[in-house]
Design a protein around this nucleic acid. Structure first.
Lengths: 340, 340
DNA sequence: CTGAAAGCGCTTACAG
DNA sequence: CTGAAAGCGCTTACAG
């Protein structure tokens, strides 16, 4: 049998209001009353029905985090950070994945799980600006990740062009001259891959080094296998790079595998740099040099932005959309050690 | 302004019951009425308030999946499988992590998030049998993973002893004679590590090969770093193994890193086998031989068991606790190729 | 095939 | 400091 507030009240000989006050730790309850009520609660094993509380308060204390996929360690690590940080602020995180598909992303943006969640942190891949503009006003939304939008929502993203420039510059400083880019994508120019590609291209152009399409390999996705295939294709094409800057660490790990299968050593023959700083990278046979976005800072900024809209004062609630840029760092490891 | 059923009913000139019928796709509504109501719904942008529905039905359609950590790719991959499979059955999964700490596991077992979730799938590390026996009757609980309990709950786990035997036998068949175990734990005998250690020991004993503590390295955790440290310690101790069977793939990846830092090659000098079949293992410089638990089968069995208790007929609901053993496979890769 | 009404279990003005 | 009562937005017997 399920115990309700009413049952506790009856047994303790007080009103439900008083029990509610005790459960919620309000003042203005005599210690004697409080103790008696608490005793009945323990005796009966009463637990508040969260669902009823949610309906009454119009709030659930649940925020959704919609990520492309959990299989990518970057997102798993980020999810971990968001969940932990939100828990410290008494928010529950409902984790969802969109598979990076536009229809799923639109679903979330449109208010999927309305009134189950108080707000949403969404990391879109394919979502378009128009999808956001068409959004019926609903729970607060914070955008995560590197795509750029004009729609008026808080947006947390590191500066991808700058990060890509840093990584590419590092490869040049090693003395490498034929630096390839792995993980470009066809299609729309707002995507993250374009930003990283742009940073790569800018720096090479400034250095007077080759930066044509012959040194760019596109991929369908961003998994290890995509990196391996793209690297193989690039080698077959005769591009003979002496360094590769990869869209992310997974692509880089795949690329290193493809290189070793052809008898090419990292970093002696080809230096490799990735992006994300996932833990796997530290344990590769040549540990992976990478761009480390400050995941903790990203997670905190996203949750803080959302909660400001939810619980902040009127000013915070209606402030202009913010664009927050957490930092990043270049982490140098074995995959870019030494000179060619 | 938030639109409720009542608003829709008023605008469409019908009762709330009828609107509810339309929303829930019940029969027995004239096509004309249905169409009119649907039109108003679209016009007003009405979305049912899930919280109210939950309170009324006494069910939320949410099940929790409490895992030690998301940072371990095995759990991330498993979570992915559970979420996808449950979604197909119209259940939402709330992902939680316990950090493998007993107090947190007890919290979930005791009914944390009562009446927010309909049931719980819990993968315990430190939880004790007595913790389960003390459980106040609450939402259905399914236990996941390899620890063994006497408490009366459905339990999904592969046969760890058999799997460890298979892996160890494989190493013997390669001609290896000094086969170490990496990732033992001090303490209680029910733990998974003990089961895998037992399988290892049994097979070596049967083969008349050394299986003493000199060939066993304990770890504090099961991360890459733990594996690297344990491997280093084992090598320093002069145990000079020609093969290692590791508690899981992460430990194996750490071990391979430690081996390469000492100039030992895999598999030429030391063959390595792991457990879990996480994707990283396929892209190691020597791709990793491993035991592959059927994750999909595990996820399905767990969700099915829970939903049987939730939505099944009386027989299914009150059936004796089941112990389900999904299968596993030995996946042979480069880390155990050839002969010494 | 449709309507009027009760009730899920809370929280919170409103009184006292 | 405590109580009686309304209401959050649904679903569902109960009628008709």
């Amino acid at each position: 049998m399920v115990i309700s507030l009413k049952d506790v009240a009856a047994r303790a000989g007080v009103s439900v209001k008083t029990v509610s006050n005790v459960v919620n730790g309000y003042r203005h309850v005599t210690p004697a009353t409080r103790q008696r009520v608490q005793q009945v609660i323990d005796e009966l094993g009463y637990r508040p029905n969260l669902t009823a509380r949610h309906l009454r308060k119009g709030r659930t204390g649940i925020i959704a985090l919609a990520l492309p996929e959990l299989g990518n360690p970057y997102f798993a690590e980020l999810a971990d950070a968001v969940i932990s940080y939100a828990a410290g602020l008494d928010y529950i995180v409902l984790l969802d994945h969109t598979n990076g598909r536009r229809d799923q992303e639109v679903l979330f943006a449109q208010g999927f799980r309305a009134r189950l969640i108080d707000g949403l942190i969404l990391s879109p891949i394919e979502l378009e600006n128009e999808d956001l503009l068409a959004r019926g006003h609903d729970a607060p939304l914070v955008l995560l990740g590197e795509r750029e939008y004009e729609a008026p929502y808080d947006h947390i993203a590191i500066d991808n062009v700058a990060a890509a420039r840093t990584a590419t510059r590092h490869l040049i400083d090693l003395g490498r001259r034929r630096i390839a880019f792995l993980g470009a994508r066809h299609g729309r120019a707002r995507q993250t891959a374009h930003l990283r590609l742009r940073g790569w291209r800018e720096v090479l152009a400034e250095a007077g080094l080759p930066h044509g399409d012959a040194l760019v390999a596109t991929t369908d996705g961003y998994a290890r296998e995509d990196g391996a295939q793209a690297m193989a294709r690039l080698l077959d094409s005769g591009a003979s790079p002496d360094a590769v800057f990869c869209y992310n660490d997974l692509v880089a790990i795949g690329a290193m595998r493809a290189l070793s299968e052809r008898g090419l050593r990292v970093p002696e023959h080809v230096a490799v740099a990735g992006f994300d700083d996932i833990e796997d990278g530290r344990y590769c046979s040549a540990s992976l040099t990478t761009i480390a976005p400050h995941k903790q800072a990203i997670a905190q900024a996203a949750v803080d932005a959302l909660i400001d809209r939810l619980d902040g004062d009127d000013e915070a609630k209606h402030a202009a959309p913010r664009h927050i840029r957490p930092g990043f760092a270049l982490v140098r490891r074995e995959s870019t050690l030494g000179k060619p």
